[in-house]
Design a protein around this nucleic acid. Structure first.
Lengths: 192, 192
DNA sequence: CAAATTCTGAAACAAATGTTTTAGATATTT
DNA sequence: AAATATCTAAAACATTTGTTTCAGAATTTG
């Protein structure tokens, strides 16, 4: 009966994501987006929808990609405490090597305060990280690898909580060493 | 020779700051601002300048006010370790009772990545906090009130670093208890 | 009080914004 | 290959954006 959509929707969303990631929601114009995506606005409105819908898809894409990566990276590690350390260290690596900082945190502070739909997605992402890390913390406590605290929930919050500060710090100071020193101290605290 | 400016510039900037604080730089329009400030755009351009200049004044106002408050609050406290604890606790109080989160952090993630002028102001604010807390940490170490680490610089970074995570956490979860638990743990770690 | 100066308000400005329209190109089905 | 359906591109759309203009009101000084 008819033609098919010509552009690869996943690829297009990924390109839109790059722009939103760099410029934020309000700092991005529809022309920025269509230019980066290589499509016309009529195609965009016919397939994905308006700017807001495209943004929703973009953060979803961001968080989903990140979740998959985290799972893949931690899966092969047997020791829970080693996995926790790996998780912290690779967070430091990403934070200190990503020029555009973290799209989820940027979004939290820019629009999650007022946009419920966005907030839900961000919350789900945070809960995924929480559950992933909490599983490891609980196991590490059972094995006696962690003794600083017996409150796994709190320690999970405590560990995750460092990341946005490091992102903020890196934007302001662009100093990897001081972040690495904090991470080393954190790991030492947990290992004690 | 002539008339004086009719509006109170400090008050006007303070009202503009409220809008920027809530809506961010890109989310705020000139009409939002002139409406909140109760002045005409011609008056605004004749006195303060354009939107960007008004934003600069707004964050400056924000950070300066905050610095004064911090000094006032910590001055009467004699014991360095008690002052550090007070600093952490009152941060928790502000974080969990401020519906608009922190303007400095929001600004860092929204525009400090690309706006050098803004970044300078934010950096100066962070360095002020750093110096304030670092003085206390050094004294507490000399007195033997802190023993977890002898690296005052690193521990200062480490303590300050918690705050943006708590802000992020409060936006997403609106849960005071879990933040208070993290703060209690942090204080316990320092006191050890 | 008169003159001089500068501030204010409303309107106007061009440019940019998010979105829609429309005519024609393109692919699928029969 | 013809008919049909739906996609695409360019342009147009109404609003909204940040900023400026200008006539008149207001205040200070002589």
């Amino acid at each position: 009966m008819a033609r098919n959509v010509e552009f690869d929707e996943q690829l297009a969303v990924s390109k839109a994501m790059d722009v939103f990631w760099r410029k934020g929601y309000n700092g991005t114009t529809m022309r920025d987006l269509t230019e980066a995506m290589g499509i016309n606005s009529s195609s965009l409105y016919n397939t994905i929808g308006d700017k807001h819908e495209l943004f929703i898809r973009s953060i979803k894409h961001y968080t989903e990609t990140r979740m998959k990566e985290a799972l893949k990276q931690l899966e092969p590690i047997k020791s829970p405490i080693k996995a926790i350390e790996k998780f912290i260290q690779s967070s430091v690596y990403v934070i200190t090597n990503e020029p555009n900082s973290c799209m989820a945190i940027k979004t939290t502070f820019e629009v999650a305060t007022t946009d419920e739909q966005v907030q839900k997605i961000i919350k789900a992402d945070n809960e995924f990280t929480y559950n992933l890390l909490n599983g490891l913390v609980e196991k590490a406590m059972q094995k006696g690898e962690i003794t600083v605290s017996q409150d796994a929930a709190m320690l999970t919050d405590y560990i995750i909580n460092h990341f946005s500060g490091w992102h903020e710090f890196f934007i302001i100071h662009k100093d990897k060493t001081r972040i690495k020193n904090m991470a080393t101290f954190l790991i030492k605290q947990i290992n004690q």
